[in-house]
Computed example of a mutant assay.
Amino acid sequence: MAVTSPELETAPRTPRQADITRAVKAVQRAGLPVVRVEICGAKIVVLTSPDVVMTPKSAVQEWLDKKNARATKGH
């Protein structure tokens, strides 16, 4: 039987630079510009511009993106 107490609980860890970089790159891959990044405790908030209009990619552009991602994945 496990015993838990408030003294044994660990606090959420502070985001590392790699965590922030990963979050920013994910937003950029979605095609959104990053305006600001806020750290609220253990939460990373990536803010984008409200006036961004998302346009769907053409089939050719999606194919090129996949091809380029595979070509640079090992680097």
Rank of each mutant, 00 (worst) to 15 (best):
V27Q: 02
Q28S: 07
D51Q: 10
G74S: 10
P50M: 15
R22I: 02
N68M: 13
I20H: 00
L47V: 05
T4G: 14
V3N: 12
I20G: 00
K67V: 10
C40A: 14
R16P: 01
A23Q: 02
E38H: 11
A23G: 03
M54I: 05
A23E: 02
P33L: 12
K67F: 13
D51K: 04
K25V: 04
P56D: 10
G74V: 01
V45F: 13
T14D: 15
V34D: 00
A30Q: 08
V34H: 00
T21H: 07
P6G: 13
A23C: 03
A59C: 06
M54Q: 12
V53C: 14
R13F: 09
K67P: 00
D51T: 06
V34G: 00
A11N: 12
I20C: 02
T4Q: 14
Q28E: 08
P6V: 14
C40K: 14
V52N: 13
R16M: 14
Q61M: 11
V37N: 00
N68G: 05
A30T: 09
P15M: 11
L32I: 07
S49A: 08
A11L: 09
A2D: 07
V24H: 01
S58Q: 15
T48G: 04
V37T: 12
P56L: 10
I20A: 01
V60M: 08
T4L: 06
S58I: 03
P12A: 03
A23R: 01
V46T: 10
E38P: 02
I44D: 00
N68F: 04
V45C: 05
R36A: 04
K67L: 14
A69T: 04
A30P: 01
L64A: 14
A23V: 07
E9N: 15
V34I: 07
G41P: 00
A59S: 04
R16D: 02
V52K: 08
R70T: 10
W63D: 06
K67G: 01
K25S: 09
A18S: 14
T55N: 15
R22W: 10
T4Y: 13
T14P: 03
K43N: 14
L64G: 02
D19C: 03
M1E: 03
V46M: 05
V52T: 09
A59W: 12
E9V: 13
L47K: 15
R29L: 13
V3S: 02
R22C: 06
V24L: 02
E38K: 04
V27E: 01
V34A: 00
V45K: 11
R16V: 07
L47Y: 12
R13H: 15
P6F: 08
L8F: 04
A18V: 13
H75E: 04
Q61D: 05
A26T: 15
S58A: 09
G41W: 05
R13Y: 15
D65Y: 07
S58N: 11
A69Y: 05
P50C: 09
E62R: 10
E62W: 11
E7L: 15
D65V: 13
V3Q: 15
S5H: 05
T10E: 12
T14R: 09
V60Y: 09
K43M: 15
A71S: 05
V34N: 00
M1T: 07
A69R: 10
G41A: 05
R16N: 11
